[in-house]
Write a protein that binds this DNA or RNA. Structure first.
Lengths: 223, 223
DNA sequence: GATGATAGTGAACGCCCCGATCAGAAATTG
DNA sequence: CAATTTCTGATCGGGGCGTTCACTATCATC
């Protein structure tokens, strides 16, 4: 929970007094996003946002406690409904779809720079950090975990893997390249990540034995 | 290059005038680190650093152009000589060693929070971003690439992998957990990451054929 | 239509940190 | 000694922050 008001994002409480201006809300989120894209989170000062949105500064402080909170809501509004789970794919294809979708989201929309700005802000604002975890990361990891569990049930994934670590191996490289910029977020990355994660880096003759042995070795249950 | 002065970190130029105070330099870096650990990068204001270090603010500005630059030099001084390449290990063991070393560095020293603060600062300071890439990330990726290339020559790594993507799959999860804090950086993570990356998530019977086929399919050369 | 509740406005406030600058004292070399 | 460079302590204007104020606007209810 970051916004101060009760309605989470767009809801309009039918209260007694003057209703909240939807125009102002959207203008603030848009202004914050545009300013952050142009010059990082420092460019999106509360005063700059207010001026660009044509809104009083007091109005922003009424609904958001900090600039990071405005950025977070702008980001979440932008990426809403960006979780898509297609049906009828095998495990590798489903993972490839999710990985490619995240790459495309970060590369082709403003959410990439916004995510960078947010994580930077989260460093000094634990409320932002918590909101990113709960409202962005956790839902996505749940989808991936479900794909992996289904894959295990189908026999397409080894049952002895750690699902959390596997999720991170698939998706963390995307964030890594977004944050550090050492290599591009291009289209073939999705294929590389999924193929290499599924197949492994070692040649076949070096791999451990059949999965029955691996299960008896670990006895770990996917959480 | 971030520090303004010529000597990169500790060198003392034998010029004419009063020599630079080593005590002041170390006190500044230490103060910056301590303040950032306590309250994030925003707590380490130039004035706070100057006061804690017992040093004039003008002295800091003389040698570092921004607070991010001070943070960067403090971080690099702290993690100097943290790249260790042990000899006589097979590929999996060498990778496991490097992964475990990074986890331990982030978990057991102050460099973890410092790295978070730096990446946050890099969001609005491209000079910091470049310095992190060149003086932190690139040397480490070079070591990993060398391990993987040696592994290919030894037949312990498939020759058709993308080395950059493989490096990210091994190490990006560590940064990911450091930045988001969604799962702990514990000791077994190193084993999980290397084992799963080497062996693959798919069971043996689902994997593609022997490596000769894979090579002819991709024809990609490790860069 | 009057009343009351809630929102948005525009302006102002003190606070703190920033980046920059200055004169002067300190330390070292030649 | 003089020359050179560093460190100091103080100061300055600027700007964003977070907050508050009185005022106006818009709605539901009586």
């Amino acid at each position: 929970m970051v916004a101060t008001g009760r309605p989470m994002l767009g809801e309009t409480t039918r209260g007694r007094g003057r209703p909240r201006s939807e125009r102002a809300r959207l203008a603030i989120l848009a202004a914050a996003g545009e300013l952050m894209l142009a010059g990082g989170i420092n460019a999106a000062s509360m005063e700059a946002i207010a001026e660009r949105a044509g809104v009083s500064k007091a109005t922003i402080y009424k609904w958001w406690p900090s600039r990071g909170a405005v950025a977070l809501d702008g980001f979440l509004a932008m990426v809403r409904d960006s979780i898509i789970v297609p049906e009828g794919l095998d495990t590798a294809a489903a993972l490839r779809f999710q990985v490619a979708a995240l790459i495309a989201l970060f590369r082709d929309t403003a959410s990439g720079p916004l995510m960078r700005a947010l994580v930077g802000q989260a460093e000094s604002d634990s409320e932002i950090a918590r909101a990113i975890r709960e409202r962005w990361l956790t839902p996505r990891r749940a989808v991936t975990a479900e794909i992996l569990r289904t894959g295990i049930a189908r026999g397409e994934i080894r049952p002895d893997i750690d699902i959390g670590a596997a999720s991170d191996q698939l998706f963390a490289p995307i964030y890594h390249r977004l944050f550090f910029g050492h290599e591009p977020l291009d289209g073939q990355l999705a294929d590389q990540l999924v193929t290499q994660a599924m197949t492994g880096l070692a040649p076949t003759r070096y791999r451990s034995g059949p999965e029955e042995i691996a299960i008896s070795q670990h006895l770990r249950q996917p959480q």
